[in-house]
């Protein structure tokens, strides 16, 4: 089962890295959303520091959606999903590999860029570690919940907008706790509580989301 997961992950990643736009687009989108906020709201440093955590998180949620829409589309179209359903491993390793692969091209670069963008938006240096931790724990949840939406809408025509409608309400806790961890750290307060909750969400989401993805894929292939 682990071998199946590892070889799938390797295959997904090499496929994603092979096409430049696959991994560049989410990062570019993430950057653009963040740079729009100072233009739209105010570039006053004190104000920017207040909205920086929320902006970084909203940008991560939206940019994560961008590459999610295609997560299962090709497998629906070329029939490899049916093959996965009948393997002895079941759909679980497949779903988990997709979630991890999606995180590697979205959540991981967002996490690495977060302290840099946080600094540009005026977050104090001592809060940048909290920014890294909050994205590192939160973005895998984003990929996991998003995969459920992608599995439900992957084979539908025009499913992208629908997926955003299904998934974004589920992202509310991530936004709240993720931004709060950065907020607390920026104010010089301990961010542990919010990070601990994000950690709990991380564990629960990675355990349960592949099951929901598997159930959704089975229904859609019926």
């Amino acid at each position: 089962m682990f071998n199946a997961f590892a070889s799938l992950l390797r295959r997904d990643l090499s496929a994603a890295l092979h096409i430049q736009s696959n991994w560049l687009m989410p990062v570019a989108f993430f950057t653009i959303i963040i740079s729009l906020f100072p233009l739209g709201v105010d570039a006053n440093p004190a104000l920017m520091q207040r909205f920086a955590p929320g902006v970084i998180w909203v940008a991560a949620l939206l940019a994560g959606l961008l590459s999610l829409e295609r997560a299962f589309k090709d497998d629906f179209d070329n029939g490899s999903l049916e093959q996965w359903l009948i393997t002895p491993h079941g759909v679980y390793p497949f779903a988990l590999a997709r979630i991890v692969a999606h995180w590697c091209i979205t959540g991981l670069p967002f996490t690495l860029l977060a302290p840099f963008y946080g600094y540009l938006l005026g977050l104090p240096a001592h809060s940048l570690a909290a920014a890294v931790f909050s994205l590192a724990l939160g973005t895998p949840v984003l990929s996991a919940l998003g995969a459920v939406g992608a599995a439900l809408t992957g084979c539908l025509r025009g499913g992208e907008m629908l997926m955003a409608l299904l998934v974004l309400p589920f992202y509310v806790p991530l936004l709240v706790f993720g931004a709060n961890a950065m907020d607390m750290a920026a104010a010089g307060l301990p961010a542990g509580a919010a990070l601990a909750i994000l950690g709990a969400l991380f564990i629960v989401a990675l355990l349960l989301a592949p099951l929901a993805v598997a159930a959704a894929l089975k229904v859609m292939l019926d």
Partner: peptide, 15 residues
């Protein structure tokens, strides 16, 4: 199929 797909969504929603 639609009803069973929304059932998955509703159960994820309850959690």
């Amino acid at each position: 199929k639609a009803a069973r797909a929304t059932a998955v969504l509703a159960i994820v929603g309850v959690v």
